[in-house]
Amino acid sequence: MKLAICTWNELVAPVFDVSESVMIVNISSGKLKTRKREDISGLDHLARIRRLSDLGVKTLICGAISRPWHDIITAWDIQVISYVSGPVKQILSALLSDNMDLQKFRMPGCPHSIQTHNLEVIARVAQAKQEKSNSVKKGTARK
């Protein structure tokens, strides 16, 4: 699963609409495989979204986002987890931890929709973990 996080000074950037950098994170079998920074400052909005789509990003974690951009990104089949704030490292740790709780990274006054989004992402990560544990069990059984 590929995630993109809008970053600013090692934190989630406050507003997606004007953010200049994203971190592309590859999570596989419940583990962080790779992370890479992408400078998106010179790109117009659509080019940014196309870039994320071309990179295979399926989920975008960002701060505040204006509604039209949220809708366009969703139309590109990228799930948006918006109104998230805090240090990127901690957010990644939370995502990879057992409880995978992003609630404490919610921006103040943010809508409840983040909760729904979270559940979907948590489900994806959990599925990846499940697949990993299944493959481990199969390996042990063979032995």
Binding site: G63, P108, G109
Partner: peptide, 24 residues
């Protein structure tokens, strides 16, 4: 901002204000 005072106080300003100029 639509954000209650209780939730705003003690938080970094960019997390509450999220304006187009916060970042740069």
């Amino acid at each position: 901002t639509g954000i209650p005072r209780k939730q705003a106080i003690g938080r970094p300003c960019w997390e509450v204000f999220h304006s187009s100029i916060c970042e740069s």
